[in-house]
Design a protein around this nucleic acid. Structure first.
Lengths: 346, 346
DNA sequence: CTGAAAGCGCTAACAC
DNA sequence: GTGTTAGCGCTTTCAG
């Protein structure tokens, strides 16, 4: 490939058309005040030269880049990717470009450099799409003042001072547990995600609250903590079988761990769902093909990402009119997908 | 949030420090020709004001943005996400920002607008991370002249005129098939991916070539086409059992379809691996927890993405020195992960 | 309808 | 060491 640097600029077009650069600018911006003949001539030359206006130069002078900064983490997992998928789709629809940053780990607290990096590139707003873990959200309560663009946070505890778009994991836990109760199960165990994850705590709490509301006890013995991986699910389930031998159902905080529950149960000669009803969480595309097909909670991460972009863009528009931006919290409800692992045929 | 537009510029810093903007520029670029006192004073003011140089303005004047355009597709699937994960990690390491575009579908042939979009933002190079399907690469052979920045393509047939970084799927098919031969299997069937996918054809070809090299016949009856989904795997396997009843092993082009093979086999009372050895492809994190644990081919997509970025950045450096860029093809070998589904204990 | 001048925020190239 | 000038590619403002 032979280097041929130097891009075609508005000047080249102007010269070729024998008009000033302002006229070209008017044409490419669809302004009405250009004579039809001039406009046509300019358009012809633009396409002949293959001229492409520089969004960079535009961003500089217009003080808006139509670019969103996206900070994510854990793209190798399917959840964050699905969310990003929703983000790209909606951003495309609204005509925004995306500058992507992935944190090296979920709990990175190198916040400031990330924000600076994005701000240096004049992004119009920021989407913080990193799950809330441990104290990786502490900065939200403080640092807010310094950031000169709107931010929307995904997947964290809602908070009146900032905009949050998230799946309601508590409801997810409720729905799963209620479904098991409806199947006539009353001794429902739980394998949770790592409890420093906000999502894991919410799912756990939904399970607890539903049991309590039904007048059923929640004991320490009925819950074991996993770390989301199938491997951890194996150990957690064995421990749970031990500590809660009466258990007739289990709500597992994600499908990967639920897969191990199915496997271990099979190995032990248990029949699912007859001996034990199982409900997972996440609705992996494989879950419908586990044995038995796994009942699970589906979170619409595509929608999640889309709504977050929409909300951020709304805020940006308000912000750029120099009006006060009011934070908004958006909670999306997950839904139950009933399959074989939880329902005993009558 | 109260709008407080107007960013702090180099001028503000210059004024505050009582020097010219040029001096500030020298300080932030670490140039040696500034007196230690001036430098310190400027640095203090920069941190006091929280000044952040505009990469946008820099990009404009330096004719390099340190930004790569990434075009991807199918982020809701794990493969593209893992690759993107590799891309973000390496880009971060090399100090490049990423502008992300996701095509609405795998086979979109709206190429030109995507390229224009990225070029308008002065990206220094492009990573085309969309799998080769049908004729969605035809443009590569032509359009090359028009694009004023280096491009690296991922996951496609290598081609002497362009830079391609890809997993060698043919070898993947070979390794899988050879492994089955080594287990003493000689009637090895294949469930392929959709044959308009280059990757599917390569895996298929690797299977065919290995059988032929071993002096074994490859018949039409021994291969059925799926569409990557578990659901399609179900039908394909049933068809294959019918058309190739003697089959003693099957190489399945991805783990999702292989999952269905395991399930159907189980339902039919077949014992895997005794009655049928199964090898998948992709190494999903769940595959180790299928019943039986699935032997599969692992492709290191993290590495793939990383190498692609590295290669692109190398090219960019050459290109910006105005030297001729020579295309390079990089082929990564996938590796066999042996688990229970293919090996009969002696 | 069209053009000239100024400037977005920065740096290259030169002066002193 | 430091300042001045010019300009990256575009749009805004104001003249005409």
């Amino acid at each position: 490939m032979i280097p041929q640097n130097r891009r075609i600029t508005i000047k080249h077009v102007a010269k070729e058309a024998g008009v000033s650069t302002q006229t070209i600018s008017r044409v490419i911006n669809g302004r009405p005040d250009v004579s039809p003949e001039t406009r046509q001539r300019v358009l012809d030359i633009i396409s002949k030269l293959g001229y492409q206006p520089s969004e960079l130069a535009r961003s500089l002078i217009q003080r808006r880049s139509c670019t969103l900064g996206v900070v994510t983490a854990g793209l190798k997992y399917i959840g964050p990717s699905r969310t990003l998928n929703g983000i790209t789709t909606k951003a495309e629809e609204l005509g925004y470009a995306l500058l992507l940053k992935e944190l090296p780990g979920f709990s990175s607290n190198e916040i400031q450099p990330q924000l600076q990096f994005l701000l240096a590139r004049h992004i119009d707003g920021i989407l913080w799409a990193v799950p809330e873990i441990g104290n990786n959200r502490d900065w939200v309560k403080e640092g807010l003042t310094g950031i000169p663009v709107p931010i929307v946070y995904l997947t964290m505890q809602i908070h009146p001072d900032v905009s949050v778009v998230t799946i309601d994991n508590h409801i997810g836990g409720e729905i799963a547990t209620r479904h098991l109760l409806e199947q006539g199960r009353h001794r429902i165990g739980h394998i949770s995600g790592p409890m420093d994850w906000w999502e894991a705590r919410q799912r756990n709490q939904g399970w607890q609250d539903t049991l309590k509301k039904a007048g059923l006890p929640v004991t320490e013995a009925s819950c074991v903590e996993g770390n989301w991986s199938s491997s951890s699910g194996e150990g957690a389930f064995q421990q749970l079988l031990h500590s809660y031998p009466d258990m007739d159902a289990v709500f597992v905080a994600n499908d990967q761990m639920a897969l191990s529950v199915l496997k271990v149960a099979h190995r032990l000669g248990m029949n699912i769902p007859r001996d034990l009803s199982v409900v997972g969480f996440d609705n992996l595309s494989e879950s419908a093909f586990f044995w038995p097909a796994l009942t699970t909670i589906n979170q619409n991460q595509l929608e999640l990402g889309g709504q977050a972009v929409q909300e951020l863009v709304n805020q940006i528009e308000v912000f750029q009119r120099n009006e006060e931006v009011t934070p908004r919290n958006i909670l999306l409800s997950p839904e139950l997908i009933v399959r074989e692992s939880s329902v005993v045929e009558k």
